[in-house]
Amino acid sequence: MHPALLLALFATSAFDVPMLSTRVVDAAAALSAEQAARLEARLADYEHQTGHQLAVVIVETLDGTPIEEASLRTVERWNRLGDARRDDGLLFFIALRERQMRIEVGYGLEGAVPDVVAGRILRELVAPRLAAGDTGGAIAAGTEALIAATGGGVSGTSGAISSADVDPWADVGFVVLAELVIGLLLQRLSRMLRGLLVAALGIGVGWVISGSVAVVAVGAVAGLVIGALPTHSMMWALSLGRGGGAGAGFSGRGGRFGGGGATGRW
């Protein structure tokens, strides 16, 4: 599905989705700098060990939005936590003023963290500490329980939506990059012939990596254009492409969520 459509579904709500720049987003300033740094390091370590992505978000208020919607919008906006093939993202979401919290579980971890387990973590480990005013301890206990529950690996994906959820621009980018490289290798041929060969390569590569007609069509057109470019223009485009890929911080990797998890109150 087109991401914009999904976004439009929720466009009526007031909740302001916080941006994900780190694994711990404390928009309510509930944690000390030391607690946040320790949690961040713990989550990064967990991600390197298991490949799963777990993020913690603390907001001041939901602005009247149901927490299930706010939490799902947050993972969707964040380029989806977890790997695109394994769908192994987790979000621990806390709204202080409403005294509500939620564990959002990606499709691939629904086996490791069934709703009942998520519910018990919130009810038995997190809620009592939050009620006692120990926010840092509550969040640490909740994340440790989630880490323990998912340390044993992924239980396989369920309930796949469709391949249309995958970002087609990444595929197009790859096709264009391949075309630029081949175009440079074929610079001795005539532009017409080079254009056709590069377009054919674009069709082939586009079909193999995405299977999407749109990507193939864009690849074919881009191939004709790229093949007709003079050598120095291709070099310039290639350097531009390389610069664009660098410099990103923490981000989700396209994992999908279907509303699994549990909501808790304290």
Partner: peptide, 23 residues
């Protein structure tokens, strides 16, 4: 908790169905 989770999944699945059919 299971019922709540299922109702939430239904809401998400319906929302996605509506937008996929619109598309």
């Amino acid at each position: 908790v299971q019922l709540e989770g299922t109702e939430n999944r239904i809401a998400v699945a319906r929302g996605r169905y509506i937008s996929v059919v619109a598309d």
